[in-house]
């Protein structure tokens, strides 16, 4: 019994980063590159054309980092907003539940590009100067001015609305009986929330959250429509200049294949990471919603 301190006998958890997953990604990247080369033969152009990569390469890299930056900004905000709104909806306080419900209905019911445009064009007008300065300090860089930051917030809120529903479902699937049992032990509301409701909500929410994250990553490309520094926008810009700069139109094939492959790898990584976390914390009786 001396060793039996904690977690003894729990089902063995797989490591978060497994070799087979890394191998899968390498396979797919090689497959993608192979496909591009084959298609370049069919479309009769040289995929290794230095003029193409000398021109597009910097755009791609700048766009890729820009996209990563937007994901890094949007993902945590969307989770925070979604979690808070989901919690508010089940809080039982009408003053919290009603605004959260209106928030979800609005962002779910309006196309994200429309919300993004509004935020980009008019967002600044609605924000007090002091908040503007704060947002500029925290989020804005030389290539990412305040309107773009606000547009990114719009993407985060759009996804947050969907995540709110995911968390709400998670909260509501915890039986009233468990809450009553926690109360009967003398736990306070906050303790019940922390020890009983939250851990189960998070576990139940992981599979649908992975789904939503994949959508969110691709939705950052909407910012490209405004001219933000991100992968789709810069690729679009470069493609539009091909005829003027004396390039070949078929280059577009290589360009957009690279873009597609990049998004594919990012979403694949994130969804697999979540699935591995999910497996690691698998608990009998709590895996009903596994995808």
């Amino acid at each position: 019994m001396a060793v039996a301190t904690e977690h003894v006998g729990r089902t063995r958890a797989p490591p978060i980063f497994s070799l087979s997953n890394a191998a899968r990604i390498v396979e797919m990247v090689i497959g993608g590159l192979l496909l591009i080369s084959i298609m370049s033969i069919v479309l009769k152009f040289d995929v290794r054309d230095p003029r193409l990569w000398a021109g597009y390469g910097p755009s791609f890299i700048r766009g890729f980092w820009g996209t990563l930056g937007y994901i890094a900004l949007i993902l945590p905000i969307s989770v925070g907003v979604g979690f808070a709104a989901g919690w508010a909806r089940v809080s039982g306080h009408r003053m919290l539940a009603w605004p959260a419900g209106a928030f979800v209905d609005f962002f779910r019911g309006v196309p994200p590009i429309v919300v993004i445009l509004f935020a980009f064009l008019f967002g600044v007008d609605f924000i007090p100067l002091r908040v503007q300065l704060f947002l500029k300090d925290v989020f804005s860089t030389s290539s990412n001015s305040l309107p773009f930051t606000l547009a990114a917030f719009a993407v985060a809120f759009h996804s947050g609305a969907y995540q709110a529903e995911i968390f709400r479902a998670g909260f509501q699937s915890i039986s009233r009986g468990q809450v009553e049992a926690a109360e009967a032990l003398g736990m306070r509301h906050f303790q019940t929330m922390r020890s009983i409701i939250l851990p189960q909500t998070v576990r139940l929410s992981l599979p649908p959250l992975g789904n939503e994250f994949a959508v969110l990553i691709k939705d950052t490309s909407l910012l490209g429509a405004l001219g933000a520094t991100e992968l789709v926008g810069l690729s679009q810009e470069f493609t539009a200049q091909i005829p003027i700069s004396g390039g070949q139109i078929v280059w577009a094939f290589a360009i957009w294949s690279s873009v597609a492959l990049t998004y594919f790898v990012m979403t694949f990584l994130v969804t697999r990471l979540l699935r591995l976390i999910e497996r690691r914390f698998r608990t009998p009786g709590l895996d009903v919603m596994s995808l």
Partner: peptide, 26 residues
Amino acid sequence: GMVFQSFNLFTHLTALENVALGPIRV
């Protein structure tokens, strides 16, 4: 102490953790 008709054990905790939780938290 109270015992319920539908047990109401905490699904995400082991039997040991279920029993130890009250003393630890409360």
